[in-house]
């Protein structure tokens, strides 16, 4: 059963990599790499079960957390082309109240 699940995940990984090679736009490739990251988390967990070594869960937790970072970095770069811009709204100036004015 676990071996069948591993095989299924590997097939999915190969298909996703084909899209990563072919994808005509950048966003197809980013999507493929994102999906690839999730499949990696699952493959590492399942391989850990298969080999009877549950220490691999730590690596899977790590990937689940930081797969996010490279996706955000790529998207931000392609749009803003700089590290320096923040993804925040500029602070609104609060409307003046009546006190202090004549």
């Amino acid at each position: 059963m676990i071996a069948a699940a591993t095989l299924a995940l590997f097939v999915a990984v190969v298909l996703v990599l084909i899209r990563a090679f072919r994808g005509p736009s950048l966003y197809d490739r980013v999507l493929a790499v994102n999906v690839f990251g999730t499949k990696t988390v699952l493959i590492i967990s399942v391989l850990g079960f298969l080999m009877g070594r549950p220490e691999f869960m730590d690596i899977a937790i790590l990937y689940a957390l930081i797969n996010f970072v490279s996706i955000i970095a790529i998207l931000k770069f392609f749009r803003y082309r700089s590290f320096q811009v923040g993804l925040t709204r500029a602070p609104k100036v609060p409307p003046r109240t009546g006190e202090g004015e004549a």
């Binding site: 059963m1 069948a4 299924a8 097939v11 999915a12 990984v13 298909l15 996703v16 999507l31």
Partner: peptide, 14 residues
């Protein structure tokens, strides 16, 4: 196994 099949379905869709 069902999760694995679902992953293949998603990849084929991709």
């Amino acid at each position: 196994v069902v999760g694995g099949l679902l992953a293949i379905v998603g990849a084929v869709g991709l």
